[in-house]
């Protein structure tokens, strides 16, 4: 049976997730992901006409917070988890590509 996803696609998705695999691992995940996608074929046989997509499993709507500022004063605690810190800033290896907004 033809795989549902190509090795190249798996490598691409892995790249997006900042993961790198060797050839053996790529084969392994290509098979696994194909199996998962095959299950979707089974799911797709169910008639879902007139069924609203499920975006959330809760029924909650309009859970909102009033616009009131509250500074939790967590700076010192939060920075404890930073691998490196300098003058209150988190120090990370430079990334040359431009950031997104």
């Amino acid at each position: 049976m033809k795989e549902k996803i190509t090795r190249e696609e798996v490598a691409h998705v892995a790249g997006l997730a900042k993961l790198s695999f060797n050839d053996e691992q790529l084969d392994h995940f290509t098979t696994q992901l194909s199996d998962i996608l095959n299950i979707f074929d089974t799911l797709a046989t169910v008639n879902t006409e007139n069924v609203e997509p499920t975006y959330s499993v809760t029924e909650n709507v309009n859970i909102l917070r009033e616009d009131v500022a509250d500074n939790w004063q967590q700076k010192q605690e939060l920075l404890k988890n930073a691998p490196l810190e300098a003058a209150g800033l988190i120090k990370v290896p430079a990334i040359l590509d431009e950031g997104e907004n």
Binding site: R65, V68, A69, D70, N71, W72, Q74, K75, L78, L79, A87, G88, L89, I90
Partner: peptide, 17 residues
């Protein structure tokens, strides 16, 4: 989050978990 929106504070002063 309820952290204040404020320009010009000390680094990471207005950020929470």
């Amino acid at each position: 989050s309820p952290s204040p929106v404020h320009f010009g504070s000390e680094p990471n002063e207005n950020a929470n978990a």
